[in-house]
């Protein structure tokens, strides 16, 4: 696209849901994919954290020759350094995932950045159609595959939804050959998080159907009755037209035909 548009993708170290192992974070990788679509090789890939982390190579393996790491200890506040980096580098479009896959995953970073920089923010972006004349046409992802078109002026921050295009495969060779620029930055400790107790997630109990019956008979019935809906309706007899009507009625009832 326009070479004058400076696109930055912020990436974090993800976590595989099954193995707990570090990986390319899904949404962040989609943010890189979207960045590559907008800026090609000119995309600026930024990570705040440990430059030695091998996962960063997986992002670079998507087709970038170089990336930047703002060196940070874990559990420190990355907001100030990223904010400074973005203003210093004159970023126009900043892309990142909605929530990190590790740490607090509050998803607040984009909002805090937007507030700090005074930039507009779009969350849950499915696609950025084009960037022209200081404006971008963006598609937001809504539930059930729906989309909303929004126009926003540059510079802006966008978080990338799971509905955005899948991240391309990361190639090993380009990944290990990419060069890293490490910028040392001031450390700001996150004091509040230090007081938190963090434990492995407890499974949440599924909510039971609570029966608030006034008399014993009703409570008994609720406790012993077979749940309704076991075994559906089977139509064997009738003309195709009647059968189709039955299906049609159900579709109308479920409001999938309008």
């Amino acid at each position: 696209m326009q070479p004058s548009v400076n696109v930055v993708s912020l990436v974090s170290v993800g976590r595989h849901p099954q193995s707990d192992r570090s990986r390319r974070a899904d949404q962040d990788a989609r943010a890189v994919e979207l960045g590559l679509k907008l800026a090609g090789k000119n995309l600026t890939l930024v990570h705040a954290g440990d430059p030695e982390n091998p996962v960063l190579r997986q992002y670079a393996g998507m087709g970038l020759d170089a990336f930047t790491v703002l060196r940070q200890k874990s559990y420190s506040d990355v907001l100030p350094i990223i904010g400074n980096f973005l203003t210093e580098n004159n970023a126009h479009v900043v892309l990142m995932g909605i929530r990190a896959e590790s740490g607090e995953s509050s998803g607040m970073l984009p909002y805090l950045l937007a507030e700090k920089l005074g930039w507009p923010l779009l969350s849950r972006v499915a696609d950025i159609l084009h960037v022209e004349n200081g404006k971008a046409d963006v598609l937001l992802a809504l539930p059930r595959g729906q989309r909303r078109a929004v126009t926003v002026s540059l510079p802006f921050i966008a978080t990338v939804d799971n509905a955005a295009k899948d991240a391309r495969q990361s190639a090993y060779g380009p990944g290990i050959r990419a060069s890293i620029t490490v910028l040392d930055a001031e450390q700001t400790a996150d004091n509040m998080a230090a007081s938190w107790a963090i434990s492995p997630a407890k499974p949440r109990a599924k909510r039971m159907k609570v029966v608030k019956a006034k008399n014993a008979a009703d409570r008994f019935k609720a406790a012993t009755a077979k749940p309704v809906g076991g075994g559906g309706n089977v139509l064997k007899q009738g003309t195709p037209a009647e059968k189709a009507q039955a299906i049609f009625d159900l579709l109308l009832e479920e409001k999938v035909i309008r």
Binding site: A100, S102, G103, A197, P200
Partner: peptide, 14 residues
């Protein structure tokens, strides 16, 4: 109590 790290941890806080 909040979920953190893509719902793999519980964070207990004020």
């Amino acid at each position: 109590v909040c979920r953190g790290a893509s719902a793999s941890t519980d964070i207990t806080r004020e």
